[in-house]
Design a binder for these strands. Structure first.
Lengths: 222, 222
DNA sequence: CATATCCTTACAGATTTCTGTAAAGCGATA
DNA sequence: TATCGCTTTACAGAAATCTGTAAGGATATG
């Protein structure tokens, strides 16, 4: 079983809960915790430099911001930076998030090894997930495998995401076109943007831009 | 110090975290836990009938619904029912909720004795809160006393909320006008709607409707 | 009663959105 | 080279948004 684990979770009590389980139920000896992404990153890097690296990272996704200014503000950035240094570290995300799209994204884009939804059966799910990941399995959460509607997913490419973000920030299509031109992202004609957004209308059954952004926000994709 | 405490929290891991703290840091001997409101209520009533009542209830507000059908679905109902039987029991709410209005409501309407926000310093806040409540104090969360920005809040009236909701659903102002007319809500001219929405633009510093809805979604008001 | 203030409504015009159609560009294939 | 399929772009028109100005109505105050 894993012997050295890093837990990144800003909510102290959840943090303690995870540690209690790792200790009592799984018997992992060396556990370190961090309440901030940056702290987690520093602990990780120190361990890596000292040649006693962590084998597993258990992290939340969202970290509340407070007085301490952080360079990393979400678990995703933490995963990215840590994987940059130690690509083979196992990563389990433990989060409130239960939207299939978002969770799938984590597996596809960030190659996480497991996901556990905060919830009633989190203890069993977590221990189960750690077991599986230790055996090199990819551990999807029940919410994802149960649900058949995971297949109804809409695939969004990079440009789709850019458009959604810019629209949500209130930019007009003219402004977005200029931005894309500046950054040499193609296609960048107003017509192409129109087409792409119209496709998003179809995909998400939205009536107009405002509706679209509201839907995408609700789905947690933005 | 309290000797018999009931913890109602559906998230197992947070549940375990609370128990760990009550055990390790405060030294409370008799702790019972419940993952469902109804369970909590039954445990409470049994203890009360057996003449060894709980002295303190620590409860979450929101309980996720699952296969088990519950008569009580939120901490508020639990508090109400328990206080009905044992009015002098101390109650601490431990929840994600950080909106001043909502928290204040709990103190005013349900006479809770303390409130702790789930968050980075929850452990210290929780132990501190329990101490205070034991000394018969009313323990407001820091978020409520610290924050001066509670006053900076934008006040949204009913019509504002209706407009935001309808816009987020993708309805045009013409459609919204007709809906308001049907429901006999005034003002309902397109001009008045324009004016009200323009004010919201100012309040939230939004560039257009799409931006406005995105902002309001992010703030969790919608 | 006169006046000030606030709220509602009407309207106008510049801009933007949304939805078509059609043309141009480009790679793959025979 | 010719043709097919796909993507990008151009353009156009109806609808909706956004931002003014101004007029009408209700209420309060002196």
């Amino acid at each position: 079983m894993f012997t050295k684990v890093l837990v990144a979770e800003d909510y102290e009590i959840a943090n303690q809960g995870i540690i209690k389980i790792l200790n009592d139920q799984i018997g992992i000896s060396h556990i370190e915790e961090a309440k901030y992404c940056d702290d987690a990153y520093l602990k990780f890097r120190k361990a890596h430099q000292d040649d006693s690296p962590f084998e597993l990272l258990i992290t939340d996704l969202s970290f509340k911001e407070d007085h301490k200014v952080q360079t990393r503000t979400s678990g995703i950035e933490l995963i990215r930076d840590i994987r940059n240094i130690q690509p083979d570290i196992k990563v389990i995300v433990y989060s409130q998030e239960d939207r299939p799209d978002k969770i799938n994204m984590l597996f596809e884009k960030y190659n996480i090894n497991g996901y556990v939804c905060k919830g009633q059966d989190a203890i069993k799910e977590l221990t189960n997930c750690i077991d599986g990941v230790y055996q090199e399995k990819i551990m999807f959460p029940k919410a994802l495998t149960d649900n058949t509607n995971a297949n109804q997913m809409v695939h969004l490419d990079d440009l789709d995401m850019i458009l959604l973000e810019e629209l949500a920030k209130g930019f007009t299509k003219k402004e977005i076109r200029l931005k894309l031109k500046e950054q040499k992202i193609t296609p960048n004609s107003e017509s192409s943007i129109d087409k792409k957004v119209s496709k998003l209308f179809d995909d998400f059954k939205a009536k107009n831009t405002t509706h679209l952004v509201a839907i995408v926000k609700d789905l947690g994709l933005l």
